[in-house]
Design a protein around this nucleic acid. Structure first.
Length: 258
DNA sequence: ATCTATTCCTGGCTGC
DNA sequence: TGCAGCCAGGAATAGA
């Protein structure tokens, strides 16, 4: 499931390959990809830039921006093999970009500027300062896990990295109000886990692969996510799984306090 | 205004 | 072995 580190890995691979190339043909094979919105005309236009915005991949052209969200199982493959789950295909002058997505949670949006659903997201967790993070968190009263999952609060965190960051920071996922010191620590650990995950090429839990079809390695360094019943790496106690905000939530009741 | 539940989707896993 | 039923979950949407 691509979150910020996985999308960052993909963008770093896509940018040098796509930038400056002209689209010869764009085919949207599944209506669901654009969620019923009109398909943009891309043929004849050149890719100016490929960047990451939260979990979105932004492909900028001279006439607008295509925002790609990979959902749960979306893959962007450069010159990859065709699969039964091909949802879109972009032929450029020199390479072919395939969008493969088994479960069709992935989506694309087009806008002259930023598509509306992308423009309203919160700040990037790697860019926001500790002070701004603390101030922003103080405005929210909900459970910290739900707050961190909310893309309007911060853009880019998902279920895996929220669980991992909360464990590293010693914060219980149901904690509602954090002291300044704990909020600063949480910000620090969010940045740390995201940077480490990017360095490891992201986490491959089920479907995630990069543009060459390679898996990431950071799942080997998860401390709580997907480790229900296993020993906490901090205290040796059992990692517990509960449901918070409709998400499987993994934590250590001993190391993480409200 | 906030928070919670539902919906989408399908391969893989569990249990009978 | 076969198969029904459940599970994973990001984000839009509807409901409380």
């Amino acid at each position: 499931m691509p979150e910020l580190p996985e999308v960052e890995t993909i963008v770093r691979a896509l940018a040098p390959v796509l930038t400056g190339r002209r689209v010869l043909e764009a085919r949207f094979l599944a209506a669901r990809v654009m969620r019923g919105a009109p398909e943009p005309v891309l043929a004849g236009h050149t890719v100016l830039e490929v960047t990451r915005h939260g979990k979105h991949i932004l492909v900028r052209f001279d006439h607008g921006t295509l925002a790609i969200h990979l959902g749960m199982t979306g893959k962007l493959l450069i010159d990859g093999a065709c699969t039964p789950y091909l949802r879109a295909e972009f032929v450029l002058d020199g390479c072919r970009l395939l969008f493969d997505d088994i479960r069709q949670f992935g989506r694309m949006a087009w806008g002259a500027e930023l598509p509306a659903n992308v423009a309203r997201l919160g700040p990037d967790p790697l860019e926001i300062s500790a002070e701004a993070f603390v101030a922003r968190l103080r405005e929210r009263r909900g459970r910290v896990k739900a707050v961190l999952l909310n893309q309007a609060f911060l853009r880019g965190l998902g279920n895996i990295y929220v669980d991992e960051a909360l464990h590293r920071a010693g914060v219980h996922p149901l904690a509602a109000a954090l002291s300044r010191a704990r909020a600063v620590r949480l910000h620090w650990e969010i940045v740390a886990v995201l940077r480490e995950a990017i360095a490891g090429g992201g986490s491959s839990i089920s479907d995630y692969v990069d543009t060459e079809g390679r898996k990431g390695s950071f799942q080997e360094r998860h401390r709580v996510y997907g480790r229900e019943g296993e020993a906490c790496l901090g205290c040796g106690g059992a990692v517990v799984r509960i449901v918070v905000a409709q998400r499987g939530t993994h934590f250590c009741p001993n190391c993480q306090r409200k």
